[in-house]
């Protein structure tokens, strides 16, 4: 098992390296000229050229990548090599945004808490709601409980997030004034305002995602409830509650865990639309402004962070597999 873990961690590092290369090459191929973009209003060809050298964009992509990687581990300066007016970006340096005059890491660090809270809260909500309704629907298959749960799930599944978000925002906050207009604060600073702000985004995301988990859980349960070992569990004299809640649910858990892990990772990379609708200062809204502005170093940073979350989530999901299914442990 520990050997497996070491191998997986090595693979994780390798994937991160390959991924950062791909991201770097991809963004360097964009027609946008960062030197031009970070130039400002009173722009002359000379300033652009000076910017280009300052940003290190006069070098080849390979050299730029090397400086970038070095920056992550040892920090870097703008321009490369230092100088009296050089900007210092300490390790781990993911780049510097000249549009916002801050390091990319600073920018992401400021935005990460809101995104993490949003993602975690929504995740707990949609997993619990999705799995409970899914199990219920499977148990009452074909009866009105099943039909109404699946009907609502279909509705939730097909609503676009911008629509649902705006409708909820409009009615709950603007029309009925049930909650104050969202304004993010840290939960450690003002828990009440935090919950009042996060409640609607959590619910909106939960509705959108829970629908998928309801359907997934229901179909998994229906499949496992037909298995021979479920009949064995019943033949032992186990009450139906235990048969379903223990034997069937555990057997059907694997795909739910997979999807859950990846969804959580995706949300940690920023729920772009929901964050924008509820003006949450998260990674998603940072990404939107970096696209609109455009601010390439920030985009590279966000892409890498998101990818990092997905890769780590994959690893955790695989480890959870082994915890759920003993046959995986042997194969590993």
């Amino acid at each position: 098992m520990s050997g497996y873990l070491v191998r997986r961690l090595m693979l994780l590092v390798l994937m991160l390296v390959l991924l950062s290369m791909a991201v770097f090459v991809l963004f360097s191929l964009l027609p946008a000229d960062v030197a031009r973009l970070s130039c400002g209003k009173a722009c002359t060809p000379e300033i652009i050229e000076a910017n280009r050298i300052r940003l290190g964009l006069d070098k080849s992509v390979i050299e730029q990548y090397w400086v970038f990687v070095k920056g992550i581990f040892a920090g870097r300066t703008y321009p490369e090599g230092g100088g009296p007016a050089a900007l210092v970006c300490a390790a781990p340096c993911l780049g510097y945004s000249f549009r916002k005059n801050a390091t990319v890491l600073q920018l992401i660090g400021e935005r990460l808490p809101a995104t993490i809270w949003l993602a975690l809260g929504a995740f707990v909500l949609f997993m619990v709601v999705g799995m409970v309704t899914g199990v219920l629907a499977a148990l009452r298959r074909g009866r009105w409980q099943d039909k109404s749960i699946m009907g609502v799930a279909l509705l939730g599944y097909s609503l676009p997030s911008f629509f649902l978000g705006l409708v909820v925002l409009f009615f709950v906050i603007i029309r009925w004034k049930l909650l104050p207009y969202p304004s993010y604060v840290s939960p450690f600073e003002n828990p009440e305002q935090f919950f009042k702000t996060m409640l609607l985004p959590w619910i909106v995301l939960a509705i959108l995602y829970a629908a998928f988990y309801t359907r997934l859980t229901r179909s998994q349960m229906l499949e496992t409830l037909g298995e021979d070992y479920i009949r064995t569990a019943r033949a032992k004299g186990l009450p139906e509650r235990t048969v379903v809640g223990k034997h069937a649910l555990r057997a059907g858990l694997t795909p739910i865990v997979t999807a859950g892990g990846l969804d959580l990772a995706g949300l940690l990379g920023g729920a772009i639309i929901t964050e924008s609708v509820f003006s949450l200062p998260g990674i998603g809204s940072l990404a939107v402004s970096a696209v609109v502005d455009p601010d390439l170093p920030v985009l590279v940073g966000i892409t890498l962070i998101t990818a990092f979350f997905v890769i780590v989530a994959n690893l955790i999901v695989d480890l959870l597999y082994a915890a759920i299914d003993p046959r995986v442990r042997v194969a590993a």
């Binding site: 298995e227 021979d228 070992y229 009949r231 064995t232 569990a233 019943r234 033949a235 032992k236 004299g237 186990l238 009450p239 034997h247 555990r250 057997a251 759920i324 299914d325 003993p326 046959r327």
Partner: peptide, 25 residues
């Protein structure tokens, strides 16, 4: 509820396919 008390205690069953009749987890 009464059935649960009988099954597995007073009467029990073995099935055709032992490969799939035990819970794999």
């Amino acid at each position: 509820k009464q059935l649960y008390r009988l099954r597995g205690a007073k009467m029990s069953m073995i099935f055709q396919d032992p490969m799939s009749s035990l819970h794999p987890y």
